[in-house]
Write a protein that binds this DNA or RNA. Structure first.
Lengths: 144, 144
DNA sequence: ACCATATACTTACTTAGGTAAATAAATTCG
DNA sequence: CGAATTTATTTACCTAAGTAAGTATATGGT
């Protein structure tokens, strides 16, 4: 029975990525790339480590995505004072377009969550956050 | 704010896959492969279409995974009466080992859901199922 | 019976994620 | 100071998922 839960999460994850990719098509962008743009918009220039830590993925994943985004002109990477690290920031083009994308994605999310009340959405986030391994202490659960 | 929800789903999806892969290592198996084994164990021999429809993925995804599983001896594919379709079933080896894997995965899931009561788990499934596009009618929500 | 269409699967190519190992810069310690 | 260790990023190789287009078998309409 519990299989159902992970099965369901896995499916909704794929579904949302698929829908986001569809919405991003007109901007020539992919979901993981958008996640990074969104992150940079929120926090300003940051190191690659900052990005993969926030996104909770491994370093190579971010490297690859950033290479593609640099090639397509969404981001710029420059050397930090610590020469090991590279500081990532939005390109001018990205700065201009990100608000439009944000709007488009917000509409999509609203459509996909239309069947849930605001209360249910909050409940859902609260419960999902509880999933995990032992390191799921109060601090993680408390920050809502 | 709503970004948080998809962000969270995406992360838990990755996390659960990562943990499942870790648990499956000793069986030389990957999460998507296990999903198919589980499916075949539940329903018995079925066509590839049956598998990708149940799993809610595209046909090529299943083709690829089955090719690997056939090579490593987990499944067998034979021609159906309709010569276009291929009927997939567990190998003898798989029949023997699947129960052990099932047990291992069940333990893992229990650990990952330890912070949620049974009631919360049911609630969580109910809410997740509500996520989707327009085709989210009563039938989908009612079947719990 | 034949041609057009539909269906089941496969192939080729793309993004996205992971691990392991390599590289290069910083830091620590004797 | 110099060698050893740690840290940030990259490279190489794996699974997983998607789309688009190709192949082969069934099916339907005239």
């Amino acid at each position: 029975m519990k299989n159902l839960l992970f099965h369901e999460i896995h499916q909704k994850s794929r579904l949302s990525i698929k829908e986001v990719n569809e919405a991003l098509k007109e901007f020539d962008l992919y979901s993981a790339q958008w996640s990074i743009l969104f992150c940079l918009k929120q926090f300003g220039p940051m190191t690659q480590k900052g990005i993969w830590q926030y996104m909770n993925v491994e370093a190579p994943t971010v490297t690859r995505t950033l290479v593609r985004m640099e090639q397509s002109g969404w981001i710029v990477r420059k050397e930090g004072s610590d020469k090991r690290e590279r500081i990532v920031q939005l390109s001018e083009h990205a700065e201009q377009v990100v608000p439009q994308i944000e709007k488009r994605i917000a509409e999509l999310e609203e459509r996909m969550l239309a069947a849930l009340t605001d209360e249910e959405q909050q409940q859902l986030i609260r419960l999902i956050k509880k999933i995990g391994m032992e390191d799921n202490k109060e601090e993680d659960v408390a920050n809502d």
